[in-house]
Amino acid sequence: MSAADPPRDTLAELDDYASGLMPETEADAFEEDLFARAALGAAPEAEFVERLRRAVEWVNQRGPFKVGNTRADIDAVLTSGLKVVFVDLGDGTAPVDIPPIAPDLDLFTYRLGVDLRGYDFVDVVVESPSGDFIKRFRDVAYDPGDGALYGMCEAPLARISFGRGTVISKVMAGRGAERQLIAAFETRPRG
């Protein structure tokens, strides 16, 4: 490799290999190298893909593989036999205290009372009270029936997110190039 060559993207190469896009003339040598490195614990891309596959399988078993749910999705997990709690976060006009999350809880589900019917895309941006960015949920789905946002997450993740203190979740929605703030929800851990 010359100094001008870009670094190898081993993850992309592995993907091309596994998906059959790598020509057979290259695949044999690739296999030899992959197996040799894997035996030495030096094929992080293969380990990453395997860990990703297992995690994706787990997430998919737990519920719909999407961000944002419908009321029907929530009702389904409430009757699934898992230990699930549902919290209505109101309509954004008043702060909401999040109750402690029980140690044996499986899923935390919630509803944000907005009406997003007619919007093409929805993002939720989470910030600290001082405006520091925490994270952005992209392309969030809403319930076509009432336009509200329903969500679910693993209880340990809810414990981490809601347990960190007061946060502001801003619901942003748009049509075409237009984008606007629909509502902001302040949540804080109770106690």
Binding site: R51, L52, V59, V67, F137, R138, E154, P156, L157, I160
Partner: peptide, 11 residues
């Protein structure tokens, strides 16, 4: 790791 993936997927 699963929690982390769930967090990353949402972005």
């Amino acid at each position: 790791e699963i929690l982390h993936l769930e967090d990353c997927l949402s972005s």
